[in-house]
């Protein structure tokens, strides 16, 4: 569903879209709005997990959600592709729009939504199948490839984009679960981008990885940003500072502040943000 208001804003953004050439000017020129969320509230049964979140997520940017444990950043992330639907007693209110479409519209099939919004989880969770089948699962599911050769291309392309192709091209039939932790996580990223989503949600993708594997994934995020919009939940402030263009700080279910990463980390406007990024709590 499109409200009159969003329509105009979107059109305004579209006009500017053509003029966008340089990522660095993105924040000044107001890039294309991907997710627009207003007054999002989430309840798990009686408990309220999120309080009136207003947050915009822009195309071809990495948006980092930071905050102490239990602050609701993962909950917010899982609203964006309706993964919260699978939790019993979870109720989401407010406006969440993806390119102007209401994500929680009854008529919108979550299957269709999740084909547009991919997700990478905290713990690498490849299927206990071959590397090829892992990557090909999404395209097969949605019927994206017309032929075997087509599918091969999609698999190769996705694994290449995820920076894994050179490491696994000789053993595509080996089980995905036999890879190292970092490779498994990149396989999960390859699996997500094989569906060619608009947005990739990442829920602490590096928390179980060593620094080298983490660096690979961070590099990868920077490359993927050219084609995808990325939202990442992270516990590591350094990571947020390194990879993101925009940062949103959550605390106790509230969005304390959001804005350009540089500004959040150098001149936060809220005392709680200041305390958190300087390590005084959290």
């Amino acid at each position: 569903m499109m409200t009159a208001e969003t329509k105009t804003t979107n059109e305004a953004h579209m006009d500017e879209d053509g003029g966008l050439t340089d990522d660095t000017v993105v924040s000044m020129n107001l890039p294309h709005l991907t997710f627009r969320t207003r007054n999002v509230e989430v309840f798990y049964g009686e408990t309220q997990a999120l309080f009136g979140i207003d947050l915009d997520i822009f195309r071809n940017q990495v948006t980092a959600l930071i905050g102490p444990s239990g602050c609701g950043k993962s909950t917010y992330l899982r609203c964006l592709n309706r993964m919260n639907d699978t939790i019993d007693g979870c109720c989401v209110t407010g406006i969440i729009e993806l390119d102007g479409d209401d994500v929680y519209d009854k008529a919108l099939d979550p299957v269709h939504l999740r084909a547009r919004v991919g997700m990478v989880f905290q713990k690498a969770n490849p299927f206990p199948k071959s590397i090829y089948d892992n990557t090909a699962y999404g395209p097969r599911l949605h019927g994206l490839a017309d032929s075997k050769a087509d599918l091969d291309d999609v698999v190769e392309g996705s694994l290449t984009k995820a920076g894994l192709w050179d490491e696994v091209k000789d053993r595509l039939d080996a089980p995905g679960t036999g890879l190292s932790g970092g490779q498994q996580q990149r396989l999960c990223i390859a699996r997500a981008i094989a569906v060619e989503p608009d947005v990739i949600l990442m829920d602490e993708p590096c928390s179980a990885l060593d620094p080298i594997a983490t660096a690979r994934i961070e590099e990868l995020m920077d490359e993927l940003r050219e084609n995808y919009t990325i939202v990442i939940v992270t516990h590591s402030m350094q990571q947020a500072a390194r990879v993101s263009q925009r940062t949103a700080f959550f605390h106790l279910g509230n969005l304390v502040e959001s804005g350009d990463t540089e500004q959040i980390f150098t001149k936060p406007s809220d005392q709680r943000t200041q305390d958190y990024i300087t390590g005084r709590f959290g």
Partner: peptide, 23 residues
């Protein structure tokens, strides 16, 4: 069956019955 497998499939856009029968 670990819930992470279900989440992985759901996150890729599998329907609930596909999650059950594929994984």
């Amino acid at each position: 069956v670990p819930p992470s497998i279900r989440e992985a499939a759901l996150g890729l856009g599998a329907s609930r019955s596909q999650v059950v029968f594929h994984h």
